Measured scan of single mutants.
Amino acid sequence: MAEAPPRRLGLGPPPGDAPRAELVALTAVQSEQGEAGGGGSPRRLGLLGSPLPPGAPLPGPGSGSGSACGQRSSAAHKRYRRLQNWVYNVLERPRGWAFVYHVFIFLLVFSCLVLSVLSTIQEHQELANECLLILEFVMIVVFGLEYIVRVWSAGCCCRYRGWQGRFRFARKPFCVIDFIVFVASVAVIAAGTQGNIFATSALRSMRFLQILRMVRMDRRGGTWKLLGSVVYAHSKELITAWYIGFLVLIFASFLVYLAEKDANSDFSSYADSLWWGTITLTTIGYGDKTPHTWLGRVLAAGFALLGISFFALPAGILGSGFALKVQEQHRQKHFEKRRMPAANLIQAAWRLYSTDMSRAYLTATWYYYDSILPSFRELALLFEHVQRARNGGLRPLEVRRAPVPDGAPSRYPPVATCHRPGSTSFCPGESSRMGIKDRIRMGSSQRRTGPSKQHLAPPTMPTSPSSEQVGEATSPTKVQKSWSFNDRTRFRASLRLKPRTSAEDAPSEEVA
């Protein structure tokens, strides 16, 4: 009796068929016929556990003709996506030579605008209408194809895939403007070719909807975003200037109206006075309405000098805001240009540092100066060695804690006790272990408590650290204090090793 083939788990290929790579489910599931010992083939499952149809090819690079078809379809799909992405970037994010197409579109729109203006002049109306009709045909074809291509290429973005995504893309403001202008152009052409009475009025009214094509030149909205950011950044200043200017306008108009309503027919109503105030304070000055009385002229002159300053403030605020924003954008561009080279330089330096163990090129690091100058660790070890030599091999803490019996001779020589300023008595072995921070803190506390006492003391002649007598400086308080830590004499004296002298005989010792 033939044995059933062993159940295979995992992703390994079956024996005897090495080139074939078959994806098997996580659990080997066989058909009921196979479990019962029949000759049925096992049921194939996909990666998600769903059964595959009987005629479906197995996924994998070596699955025969199905694999070749899959490779061809995958390559075609990649080319399709690449083309779609390229078209989308050309239309929505132009760079380099892609601006040539947008310059061509701008020339078409500008020519249409010029011809629309010439069509309103009686001398050039006939020729402009003929040229404009031909140009409209060209623009309908160009913009119609462009609109379709834009909607198709938007599928390269995830949020615009599918018919719902394309509809979302078509609802964008600039796409809506394109659609309105396209419909208006078709209506103008249809009305112009019919030759009816309505054609002339339709051409004159709907052609100027094509002015909206100038708005579509900035599809990404960079200028509007820049203007919005400047207004938002200086909103408080703008609101303040406009508010005060509006108050000056209504008060000036009302007072001039009261002064001129009886003697001047131009100011017969408050609305006429508001019109005069707006034209005057905005420095336009049509001259259609002028005050005639001396009181009205004085009020107009005073409020004009006051109001023009507030009406001119928004222009200066926006101008300075634009300058600052442009400078910030230039700085951001320079930062973006330098970020990648800086990151590459840091990575290269780290690779060199991690692979080169000698690091002989590091001549400006802490390790280099640590090898030249005595390190703080060596100074600490030197302090501890000196203290243990004086205390008979014991550390200062051990000397303080060691009990001394009554009447027993002390094995240590008597030492002079010292007192730290602002604290109780402490171990004499710690007097010379006072660090730089303690010395600086002690000097600052003395300056806070009594700076007036220092200038009363007789001035001391500054001497070099080499000429100081070591026996005289029994305490860190003898170090000359200065008002600034930048004094080199104080810094050098604080680094010197001060020996400890006994109370009975204080021989001067120098520590090399």
Score class of each variant (00 low, 15 high):
307 G>S: 00
212 L>M: 11
236 K>N: 02
153 S>P: 00
72 R>L: 13
5 P>S: 04
80 Y>F: 10
128 A>G: 10
234 H>Q: 02
18 A>V: 15
258 L>Q: 06
284 I>M: 00
306 L>V: 13
304 A>S: 03
6 P>R: 05
102 H>D: 02
84 Q>L: 02
8 R>P: 08
1 M>V: 03
116 S>F: 15
129 N>I: 08
290 T>P: 00
146 E>D: 08
213 R>H: 10
244 I>F: 04
296 G>V: 01
302 G>C: 13
303 F>I: 01
209 L>M: 15
320 S>C: 01
331 R>G: 00
2 A>V: 09
24 V>L: 09
323 A>V: 02
338 R>P: 00
268 S>Y: 11
137 F>Y: 05
192 G>V: 02
158 C>R: 15
67 S>A: 11
15 P>L: 05
121 I>M: 13
59 P>T: 13
182 F>I: 07
187 A>G: 07
20 R>S: 01
243 Y>H: 07
339 R>G: 01
228 G>A: 13
140 I>L: 07
215 V>G: 14
3 E>A: 10
165 G>C: 00
270 Y>C: 01
86 W>C: 14
48 L>V: 04
157 C>R: 09
207 R>S: 03
111 S>G: 04
319 G>C: 03
86 W>L: 07
266 D>N: 10
274 L>H: 00
35 E>G: 13
291 P>L: 01
206 M>R: 03
218 D>V: 03
316 G>A: 00
48 L>R: 08
139 M>V: 15
265 S>C: 02
131 C>F: 14
74 S>W: 12
331 R>P: 02
32 E>K: 06
277 G>V: 01
122 Q>K: 04
168 R>L: 15
262 D>Y: 00
309 S>T: 01
189 I>V: 00
75 A>P: 14
50 S>R: 13
344 N>H: 02
175 C>Y: 08
288 D>V: 00
104 F>L: 04
180 I>S: 06
222 G>A: 03
297 R>G: 01
329 Q>P: 03
163 W>C: 06
56 A>G: 04
166 R>S: 07
170 A>G: 04
254 F>L: 03
286 Y>N: 01
250 I>F: 10
207 R>C: 01
231 V>I: 13
347 Q>R: 10
246 F>L: 01
280 T>A: 00
334 H>Y: 11
100 V>L: 04
20 R>L: 09
43 R>L: 07
272 D>H: 02
103 V>G: 09
196 N>H: 04
67 S>P: 12
151 V>D: 00
115 L>P: 06
82 R>L: 03
206 M>L: 07
24 V>M: 04
148 I>T: 10
181 V>E: 02
133 L>I: 07
293 T>K: 00
302 G>V: 14
82 R>G: 11
143 F>C: 05
36 A>P: 06
70 G>D: 08
46 G>A: 11
15 P>A: 15
221 G>V: 02
305 L>V: 05
299 L>M: 13
250 I>T: 01
42 P>S: 06
34 G>S: 07
69 C>G: 04
37 G>A: 11
191 A>E: 11
76 A>S: 07
210 Q>E: 07
149 V>A: 15
222 G>D: 03
247 L>V: 15
160 Y>S: 00
271 A>S: 03
162 G>V: 01
217 M>I: 11
3 E>G: 06
295 L>R: 03
304 A>D: 00
18 A>S: 09
122 Q>L: 01
77 H>L: 11
92 E>K: 01
251 F>S: 10
5 P>A: 05
167 F>L: 09
108 L>M: 08
140 I>S: 12
153 S>A: 13
66 G>S: 05
144 G>C: 08
80 Y>C: 06
245 G>W: 05
164 Q>P: 07
55 G>C: 15
18 A>D: 04
17 D>E: 07
314 P>A: 00
14 P>T: 11
268 S>A: 08
343 A>V: 11
219 R>S: 05
14 P>S: 15
306 L>R: 01
301 A>T: 05
53 P>R: 15
208 F>Y: 04
57 P>L: 14
93 R>L: 15
125 Q>L: 07
335 F>S: 01
312 A>G: 04
229 S>L: 08
269 S>C: 07
241 A>G: 01
225 K>E: 10
324 L>Q: 00
123 E>G: 07
105 I>T: 06
127 L>H: 11
157 C>G: 15
46 G>V: 13
157 C>F: 15
24 V>G: 03
55 G>R: 12
271 A>G: 15
192 G>S: 04
18 A>T: 04
347 Q>L: 13
337 K>R: 00
118 L>V: 08
251 F>Y: 06
8 R>G: 14
247 L>M: 15
68 A>S: 08
142 V>I: 11
48 L>P: 02
58 L>I: 15
299 L>R: 00
265 S>A: 14
170 A>P: 00
322 F>S: 00
51 P>A: 09
44 R>S: 04
214 M>T: 07
327 Q>P: 03
192 G>C: 03
18 A>P: 09
202 A>V: 04
288 D>E: 00
137 F>L: 13
284 I>F: 00
7 R>C: 09
7 R>H: 06
127 L>R: 03
73 S>A: 10
294 W>R: 03
73 S>T: 10
130 E>K: 03
255 L>R: 00
5 P>H: 09
329 Q>E: 13
339 R>M: 14
217 M>V: 04
317 I>S: 01
214 M>V: 10
245 G>V: 15
95 R>G: 04
227 L>R: 00
124 H>L: 08
318 L>P: 01
280 T>R: 00
128 A>T: 10
57 P>S: 15
110 F>C: 07
203 L>V: 10
176 V>D: 00
296 G>A: 01
279 I>L: 01
225 K>M: 04
193 T>P: 04
93 R>P: 01
148 I>S: 09
304 A>T: 02
293 T>S: 00
153 S>T: 02
228 G>R: 05
20 R>P: 06
266 D>Y: 00
200 T>K: 06
9 L>R: 03
221 G>D: 02
204 R>H: 03
56 A>V: 13
235 S>G: 02
21 A>S: 07
116 S>P: 05
154 A>P: 01
73 S>C: 13
62 G>C: 12
14 P>A: 06
246 F>S: 02
294 W>L: 11
35 E>K: 04
115 L>M: 13
154 A>V: 14
82 R>C: 06
195 G>V: 05
232 Y>D: 03
306 L>M: 10
297 R>M: 03
12 G>R: 04
10 G>V: 15
140 I>T: 05
246 F>I: 02
147 Y>H: 03
158 C>S: 06
219 R>G: 03
92 E>G: 00
173 P>T: 04
226 L>R: 00
27 T>R: 10
43 R>G: 08
205 S>I: 05
294 W>G: 03
236 K>T: 04
76 A>G: 09
152 W>R: 01
205 S>R: 02
307 G>D: 00
301 A>P: 01
203 L>Q: 04
278 T>M: 05
344 N>T: 08
2 A>D: 05
8 R>H: 03
201 S>F: 06
110 F>S: 09
244 I>S: 02
126 E>A: 06
293 T>A: 00
325 K>R: 00
237 E>K: 01
293 T>P: 01
308 I>F: 12
244 I>N: 02
75 A>T: 14
64 G>V: 08
206 M>K: 02
184 A>P: 03
320 S>F: 01
207 R>G: 01
302 G>R: 00
34 G>D: 07
104 F>S: 01
326 V>F: 06
252 A>V: 02
275 W>C: 00
161 R>G: 15
241 A>D: 05
116 S>T: 10
258 L>P: 01
119 S>A: 09
91 L>V: 11
167 F>I: 04
53 P>L: 12
175 C>S: 06
133 L>V: 13
311 F>I: 02
254 F>I: 02
47 L>V: 07
